[in-house]
Write a protein that binds this DNA or RNA. Structure first.
Lengths: 238, 238
DNA sequence: GTTTTCATGTAACCCGTTACATGATTCA
DNA sequence: TGAATCATGTAACGGGTTACATGAAAAC
């Protein structure tokens, strides 16, 4: 099971680590900034927030005048209930960040993990990237095998669909390869402070590490939600 | 709402149109041959089959000795309950095939539709492909807008994730472009249709435009390495 | 002869969305 | 003043999976 709510918790904690926010804003961030996640509804988000509060990982504070000023400066909007990460919450998040279990490289989990790589230690990043890669390679292998088995029985369109799917996965593997290499190659002073987002040099220099191949078009991958591409089957573990 | 069960019904009808099958086999086909679908469990499949039977679209027949022989030749396996499409079922499926509502180009729906393009009329194929494309372009537009809005506030990894996501969508658009063009060009003279999707167009009996490829057991011909319709692939620059 | 794979089913449960209820604030 | 957006919540519902129950044929 994908334990999607686990992803939500993780992402909420991660976002709140950067700065306190109220639910409405949180949801927007979840669905746009971190555009990878299939939209969560309030019916999911608010109960989740409650749980996190109950666990002592968050505290809710009323949107005071002081808070308003801050919130306004950030989002131009008045806040009602602002959620703030507690020390325990931070600790818990840190712990989650360091986990590298197999689920860390399942589709949506992986995206969530990647989105917070900025706060993740180098080794962990490596493990997650490599885990993801081998997961995909496994998947590719299955696809290839199944394709060989059934090739003649399939019509052109089905074949084409399959081909495109495989190519998407292959493309993601190449992407991971680049990322891994880039990690390996060094530049280590990745920020890890939440607010380290500070100086963001937009100037296209490879200064800070990521490949940034602008239009080096590579084939497919997984688009946002439940994308056209892949998700092959074979994987009954879902 | 994705109405995922609708996809299942559609796919089941489509697969059974090609040849009668029992549930177990059906599921395998759903998850491998048509590898696009996220695995459906039996807890979903069997109830669905019952519904379809209740609607008069399928009939269940016991796996008789006769059936066994056939089944054995196909899959080497004995069948217990074989589901066969009724005339009404066929009609219903045909109707579904001709629908081109907006949902036809939502992620999983689209994949399902595409998988049965072999039985779909050319115009319908075009509409679906174009619909999908504009859906994706819309999505791209949103992503771009949101990216512009938030660019500076995001760290490198988040940015990279977003970039990769967009590129994936762009890639799918290119794929669709090729497919559309290929449809437009009339793919009669298209290369290598295995079982002659090619000569299909001029076959009088195919007034309804349905290829009706291979009868299950006859792989016979050319194991075409390359699919007929499009063929973006080949290019290594991708 | 026992394990694997084939094969069919069902009921409990989990998860998340939809739809609804409510109210403050901003803008026309 | 009324519409639109912001903002928080909840209860009912739906859909799908998991886990379980069952049994036959194949493979070892």
């Amino acid at each position: 099971m994908s334990r999607r709510s686990g992803i939500l918790e993780f992402a909420v904690l991660g976002l709140l680590r950067e700065s306190p926010m109220h639910g409405y804003e949180l949801r927007k961030r979840l669905n746009t900034s971190l555009g990878i996640f299939r939209a969560f509804s309030y019916g999911t988000l608010y109960p989740c927030l409650k749980t996190l509060v109950a666990n002592g990982w968050l505290i809710e504070e009323p949107g005071s005048a002081l808070e308003d000023a801050l919130a306004a400066s950030l989002a131009g909007r008045r806040a009602k209930i602002v959620y703030r990460l507690t020390a325990e919450g931070k600790e818990h998040f840190e712990e989650l960040l360091s986990h590298t279990g197999p689920d860390a490289w399942e589709d949506e989990h992986f995206a969530a993990r990647f989105a917070f790589f900025g706060q993740t230690e180098r080794e962990v990043r490596m493990r997650v990237l490599e885990g993801r890669r081998s997961r995909l390679e496994e998947r590719l292998e299955k696809m290839r095998a199944s394709l060989v088995r059934t090739r003649e029985r399939l019509d052109d369109y089905t074949l084409e669909l399959q081909r495109h799917g495989m190519e998407s996965v292959e493309r993601e593997v190449r992407w991971l390869n680049e990322l891994i290499e880039s990690e390996r190659a060094g530049r280590d002073q990745r920020r890890s402070g939440p607010e380290g987002l500070a100086e963001q040099e937009d100037t296209p220099g490879e200064a800070d590490g990521l490949p940034r191949h602008r239009d080096a078009a590579s084939p497919g991958g997984t688009p946002s939600a439940r994308p056209g591409p892949p998700d092959p089957s074979a994987d009954t573990t879902k």
